[in-house]
Design a protein around this nucleic acid. Structure first.
Length: 475
RNA sequence: GGUGUCGUAGCCAAGUGGUAAGGCAGAGCUCUGCAAAAGCUCCAUCCCCGGUUCAAAUCCGGGCGACACCUCCA
C-alpha cells in the first residue's frame, strides 16, 4: 500500500516513494534531558517509520545528535572550570558533557518503545564534511569570510524562502537585530563557520579556528550518509524557519540539484495552551512523568490521539483518557490470555471483520498518518472482539483466538504498547486471598467476601468475575 | 508588521461539498449476591455574519478568538 504524506514544501499530500525510503529526522541537542515536547517529534518520526514498514516500504532512517552548539560548549566550559586539569582539552570536555545526555536520550527512546533508528550521526564526527561544504559554498561564490567566520550570502539564493514562504524583505528586522553588532554583509546572512578562540571548543580550518554553525551539520551529514538527495526530512514546525530553510539553501548551492523531496513537520505539544519549551520553563521530561507514576505507553497513546499536524495540549485529563484506552487494550489482551480454546470451526464472520479492521487501520495510517482514525478502527475492533468473546462465553475456537490476538498485534506494530504492558504475575499469596474470597462468596458471607475484595484492590489488583471463574488483573 | 495554523458535543478528537468517525465522562439496560469487567441503547448540526450551490462543518468574503514562526527551540 502506498503512503501519502503532507509536504510542507508544496503544501499538498504526496505519495512517498523510494527504495529504501531515505529519511533524516532532526534529533536532540544533547545539552540537557529532552522534554516530552521533543519526544512528540521523535514519536512522529517513529510513527512514520512504523507506518512505512507496515505498508511494505524498506526504510533507511537517520536521526542526528547535535553535540556541538552554544549550549553544549557552555556546558563543556563549565565542566572544565569545575574540574581543572581533568580533561585534555575542551573537545574532550565537550564529549564528557554530552555523553550522559546522549545516553539518557537513548534510554528514553527505549522506554517509549521507539524503534531504533538505523543511524545516529553525531555532529562532531562530521567536521571534515562540514568544512568541505563550506569550501564548496565559497567556491560557488555563495559564502564569504569575515574575520575568521564564514557566512552564507542569502541574496545569492534567488529562491530563498521557498519552504517557509518568508519574504525577508517584508519582515521587521530593525527591532530584532542591531546591525552594528554583526560583521555580516547583510543582517539576514547566516553563519556557516563561527570563529572561536582558544578558550572555546574549536577545530582547525583554512579560515582559522572555529566551529560549525547550527544549520551546517544536517546538510553535511545528509550528503555524507546518503550520498545524494533524500526522500523525507522531518522535524518540528519551529525548524521550518530558519533551520530547514537554511539547510536547503546550503545544500542546493553546494551540491546542486534537489536536496530533500519531502519535508514533514509535526506541530507542537502545548502546556496550558502554550508551546512547551525549555526557555519558557513549562516543560516535563519523561523522567518527571515516570516519577509521577505516568506510564510510557499512555504517553505514546496520548501522542497518537491527535494528528501530528495539529497542536496537542498536554493535560492531566488528556493523559487519563489515554490511560483508559490503553487499559481497555490491555484488558482485552489479558482476557484472551485466559479464555479457553477448543477445536471448533473458526468463524468466517470474525475472520472477515478482522481482515477488514487491519486493512482499514493501515489505510488510515497510509493517508498522511491519520492516527486518530486508526485508533478509531482499533476501538471498533476491540468492541467487536469483546462481543465475540461474550457470545462464545469465554470459550473460543483456537483459530478465532489466534485471529483476534494476531489482529491486536498487527495494530501494535504501530501502537507499540504491548511491549510495555505490565506483567500480570499473580503471587500465591494473592491467589490464596482470591480463593478465600470466593469461598466466602460461595458460603454467602458477602461481608467477608467484599472485605477481601477491598484488600486485593489495595494491593493493586481488581477482581474480574467471569463465566469461567474469578481472575485478578493489575490496576 | 509579515507568514502560517486552528476554532466541531461536558472534555479529547476525526471529517473538509452530499446531510456529523472514535474515545473519555454521563444516563438507562443485560450480566452480577453487590460491584468490577464486557455488551446493548441514548447523548452535537460544527465560533459569528454575509455569499456561492440543488446541497456547506466542509468553498468564498468579512468579523471575533486562540496559537505558532519571523530570536535558541521538536
Amino acid at each position: 500500500m502506498s503512503v501519502t504524506l503532507f509536504n510542507t514544501l508544496t503544501r499538498t499530500k504526496e505519495t512517498i516513494s523510494g527504495s529504501p525510503v531515505k529519511i533524516y529526522s532532526c534529533g536532540p541537542t544533547v545539552y540537557n534531558y529532552a522534554h516530552i515536547g521533543n519526544f512528540r517529534s521523535y514519536i512522529f518520526a517513529d510513527i512514520l517509520n512504523r507506518t512505512l514498514r507496515l505498508a511494505g516500504y524498506p526504510v533507511l532512517h537517520a536521526m542526528n545528535l547535535t553535540d556541538v552548539d552554544d549550549k553544549t560548549i557552555k556546558g563543556a566550559i563549565e565542566l572544565t572550570q569545575k574540574n581543572p586539569g581533568k580533561y585534555a582539552d575542551l573537545k574532550e570536555a565537550l564529549h564528557a558533557y554530552t555523553a550522559p545526555y546522549t545516553e539518557a536520550f537513548f534510554a528514553d527512546l527505549k522506554k517509549l518503545n521507539i524503534i531504533p533508528f538505523d543511524l545516529h550521526p553525531r555532529a562532531t564526527d562530521f567536521i571534515p564534511a562540514m568544512l568541505d561544504l563550506v569550501e564548496r559554498l565559497i567556491q560557488a561564490g555563495i559564502a564569504y569570510e569575515q574575520d575568521g567566520s564564514v557566512y552564507y550570502r542569502i541574496a545569492e539564493k534567488k529562491d530563498y524562502g521557498k519552504l517557509s514562504r518568508v519574504d525577508l524583505d517584508k519582515n521587521k528586522t530593525g527591532t530584532r537585530y542591531n546591525t552594528d553588532e554583526y560583521d555580516k554583509d547583510d543582517v539576514r546572512d547566516f553563519v556557516l563557520w563561527k570563529a572561536e578562540g582558544k578558550d572555546g571548543v574549536h577545530w582547525h580550518s583554512d579560515h582559522g579556528d572555529g566551529r560549525p554553525g547550527w544549520h551546517l551539520e544536517c546538510s553535511a551529514m545528509i550528503h555524507e550518509i546518503f550520498k545524494g538527495p533524500i526522500d523525507i526530512h522531518t522535524g518540528g514546525v519551529d525548524l521550518i524557519f530558519p533551520h530547514h530553510e537554511n539547510e536547503i539553501a546550503q545544500s542546493e548551492a553546494a551540491y546542486g540539484g534537489e536536496f530533500v523531496k519531502h519535508w514533514a513537520h509535526c506541530e507542537h505539544l502545548l502546556v496550558d495552551n502554550r508551546k512547551m519549551s525549555k526557555s519558557a520553563g513549562n516543560f516535563f521530561t519523561l523522567r518527571d512523568l515516570l516519577e509521577q507514576g505516568k506510564k510510557p505507553e499512555v504517553l505514546r497513546y496520548f501522542l497518537l490521539s491527535a494528528h501530528y499536524s495539529q497542536k496537542i495540549n498536554f493535560t492531566s485529563d488528556a493523559l487519563d483518557m489515554a490511560a483508559a484506552s490503553v487499559d481497555k487494550f490491555f484488558s482485552l489482551m489479558n482476557r484472551l490470555g485466559r479464555t479457553a480454546k477448543n477445536q471448533a470451526d473458526v468463524s468466517p464472520v470474525l475472520a472477515a471483520a478482522s481482515e477488514k479492521a487491519r486493512q482499514n487501520f493501515l489505510a488510515e495510517l497510509a493517508d498522511d498518518l491519520n492516527t486518530p482514525r486508526a485508533l478509531a478502527v482499533v476501538h471498533e475492533y476491540m468492541r467487536e472482539a469483546n462481543a465475540f468473546i461474550d457470545t462464545a462465553k469465554e470459550n473460543l475456537a483456537a483459530g478465532d483466538h489466534t485471529t483476534i490476538l494476531e489482529t491486536l498485534r498487527f495494530f501494535d506494530k504501530l501502537l507499540g504498547i504491548i511491549d510495555l504492558m505490565p506483567q500480570a504475575g499473580v503471587s500465591a499469596e494473592l491467589q490464596a486471598l482470591l480463593d478465600e474470597r470466593n469461598q466466602a462468596r460461595a458460603a454467602k458471607d458477602f461481608k467477608r467476601a467484599d472485605a477481601l475484595r477491598d484488600q486485593l484492590l489495595k494491593a493493586g489488583y481488581k477482581i474480574l468475575d467471569t463465566k469461567t471463574g474469578s481472575h485478578l488483573e493489575k490496576v
